[in-house]
Simulated scan of single mutants.
Amino acid sequence: MTTKAPPKPTASELEMLRLLFELGPSTARQVHDAAAETRPDLQYANVLRTLQVMHTKGLLTRDESLKAHVYAPAQEKDSLQTSLLKDLIHKAFAGSGKALILAALRGGHVTAKERAEIQQLLDDEKPEA
């Protein structure tokens, strides 16, 4: 039997996932408080509803053993990022990872420090002659 991968998260769900990856397993109140630092207009009820929907979709797990439910991502961060990246490469770059990298480098999305880190990674991967 094959397990179905969870659906791709929406933009607001990605925001909740990002917060949960930073915070670790958290209650809706904790997620709301963290989100409110950058989005003070965000209502607690909206955060709670989003977390509930994400749980239903399989994007989150929920520990119901305490009075306040504790939510956590259902996938590891690296696994989720890899899945989203594969989808982006397929949809936006015709399956070419090279095209994605070149777009990021040319588009000013990579800092000088990040470029140096990328270059070091590439240098480390070069086969010895």
Rank of each mutant, 00 (worst) to 15 (best):
T3Q: 15
K4H: 14
A5V: 06
A5W: 04
P6V: 10
P9V: 15
P9E: 07
S12V: 12
L14A: 08
E15F: 07
E15D: 10
L17P: 03
R18Q: 11
R18Y: 12
L19H: 04
F21L: 08
E22L: 08
E22G: 08
S26M: 01
R29F: 02
V31F: 00
A34I: 01
R39F: 04
P40R: 01
D41G: 03
N46M: 07
V47R: 00
V47N: 00
L48H: 06
T50V: 10
L51F: 06
Q52M: 15
M54T: 01
K57L: 11
L60C: 05
L60E: 00
L60N: 01
T61G: 06
R62N: 14
D63R: 04
E64I: 15
L66T: 12
V70L: 09
Y71F: 11
A72E: 09
A74G: 04
A74E: 06
A74S: 13
Q75W: 07
Q75I: 09
D78A: 08
S79G: 05
Q81F: 14
T82D: 15
L88P: 08
I89T: 10
A94K: 04
G95C: 03
I101V: 11
I101N: 09
A103R: 12
G107I: 03
V110A: 06
T111W: 04
A112K: 15
K113R: 10
K113D: 13
E114V: 07
E117G: 05
E117K: 15
I118S: 00
Q119Y: 12
Q119K: 14
Q120I: 07
Q120D: 14
L121Q: 07
L121I: 13
E125F: 12
K126M: 07
A129C: 06
